[in-house]
Amino acid sequence: ITGDVSAANKDAIRKQMDAAASKGDVETYRKLKAKLKGIR
């Protein structure tokens, strides 16, 4: 179950990262990237 949750989280975070990148929001992008590392 835990694996599914983190996989879903990663997917959601990647989508947020894409949105931040397209807006040029480097700050948010970095925060999300750090979150991704924390999940692993």
Rank of each mutant, 00 (worst) to 15 (best):
4 D>T: 09
23 K>P: 00
40 R>V: 14
30 R>T: 06
14 R>K: 07
22 S>N: 08
32 L>T: 02
23 K>G: 04
16 Q>S: 04
39 I>A: 07
38 G>V: 06
14 R>W: 04
21 A>Y: 13
25 D>W: 03
13 I>Y: 03
17 M>G: 01
3 G>R: 10
25 D>F: 00
22 S>F: 04
6 S>D: 11
3 G>M: 10
25 D>S: 00
40 R>Q: 13
15 K>N: 04
7 A>W: 07
12 A>T: 13
38 G>H: 11
27 E>H: 03
3 G>W: 03
10 K>N: 08
30 R>I: 11
2 T>W: 13
18 D>F: 12
16 Q>R: 05
27 E>V: 04
6 S>I: 11
13 I>G: 00
16 Q>G: 05
7 A>F: 09
19 A>G: 02
34 A>P: 00
30 R>Q: 13
4 D>Q: 12
20 A>P: 00
37 K>W: 00
21 A>D: 03
34 A>M: 06
26 V>L: 15
29 Y>I: 13
25 D>A: 00
8 A>V: 09
26 V>C: 15
11 D>K: 10
16 Q>N: 03
4 D>S: 08
9 N>E: 13
37 K>T: 08
4 D>R: 13
32 L>D: 02
22 S>V: 09
25 D>C: 12
20 A>W: 00
28 T>K: 06
22 S>K: 14
36 L>I: 04
35 K>R: 06
23 K>Y: 03
28 T>F: 05
10 K>Y: 15
16 Q>T: 02
16 Q>H: 03
3 G>F: 05
17 M>K: 02
33 K>T: 02
28 T>I: 04
37 K>R: 12
12 A>W: 14
18 D>M: 15
9 N>A: 12
12 A>L: 12
8 A>M: 12
28 T>W: 12
3 G>L: 08
15 K>S: 05
11 D>R: 13
10 K>V: 15
4 D>W: 03
18 D>Y: 14
20 A>M: 02
37 K>N: 10
1 I>C: 15
3 G>V: 12
11 D>V: 11
40 R>S: 14
34 A>W: 01
6 S>W: 02
25 D>P: 00
23 K>A: 12
11 D>M: 08
33 K>L: 15
24 G>M: 05
17 M>D: 01
36 L>V: 01
13 I>S: 01
36 L>F: 02
8 A>D: 12
9 N>I: 15
26 V>K: 13
3 G>K: 09
38 G>P: 04
29 Y>N: 12
38 G>Q: 13
19 A>P: 01
23 K>V: 11
31 K>G: 00
34 A>Q: 07
32 L>K: 02
13 I>A: 01
22 S>Q: 13
21 A>V: 06
5 V>Y: 10
32 L>R: 02
14 R>T: 05
26 V>T: 12
15 K>H: 07
23 K>R: 13
1 I>K: 11
14 R>F: 05
12 A>Y: 09
29 Y>V: 13
13 I>C: 00
30 R>P: 13
18 D>R: 15
21 A>H: 06
40 R>M: 15
18 D>Q: 14
7 A>V: 08
20 A>Y: 02
33 K>E: 15
11 D>P: 04
10 K>I: 15
9 N>T: 12
13 I>D: 01
11 D>F: 00
4 D>L: 11
15 K>A: 10
11 D>A: 13
27 E>D: 09
11 D>Y: 00
18 D>C: 15
12 A>M: 13
32 L>Q: 01
32 L>S: 02
3 G>N: 11
40 R>W: 13
29 Y>E: 13
39 I>V: 07
5 V>M: 12
17 M>H: 00
36 L>Y: 03
39 I>T: 06
15 K>I: 07
28 T>G: 06
37 K>P: 03
3 G>E: 10
40 R>D: 14
37 K>L: 10
8 A>T: 09
39 I>K: 05
17 M>Q: 01
21 A>T: 03
9 N>W: 15
28 T>H: 05
23 K>M: 09
36 L>N: 01
30 R>L: 15
33 K>H: 07
27 E>A: 05
14 R>I: 09
12 A>S: 12
24 G>F: 04
39 I>L: 13
39 I>N: 06
11 D>H: 08
6 S>K: 10
39 I>H: 06
38 G>R: 11
1 I>A: 09
5 V>E: 07
34 A>G: 03
21 A>G: 03
37 K>F: 01
21 A>R: 14
21 A>P: 01
2 T>M: 13
39 I>W: 06
40 R>T: 14
16 Q>L: 14
8 A>I: 11
22 S>H: 07
32 L>E: 02
16 Q>Y: 02
17 M>V: 01
36 L>G: 01
29 Y>M: 09
19 A>M: 11
27 E>P: 05
10 K>C: 15
24 G>L: 02
31 K>S: 02
10 K>H: 13
27 E>W: 00
38 G>M: 07
28 T>P: 00
14 R>L: 13
2 T>P: 07
22 S>W: 03
26 V>D: 14
33 K>I: 06
21 A>F: 14
28 T>C: 15
35 K>H: 05
9 N>H: 11
1 I>N: 11
37 K>H: 12
30 R>N: 14
22 S>P: 00
35 K>F: 13
8 A>L: 10
7 A>P: 08
36 L>W: 02
40 R>G: 13
7 A>Q: 11
15 K>L: 07
36 L>R: 02
31 K>L: 02
25 D>I: 00
21 A>N: 04
18 D>K: 14
13 I>L: 08
6 S>N: 12
16 Q>M: 14
40 R>I: 14
10 K>A: 14
9 N>V: 14
19 A>Y: 07
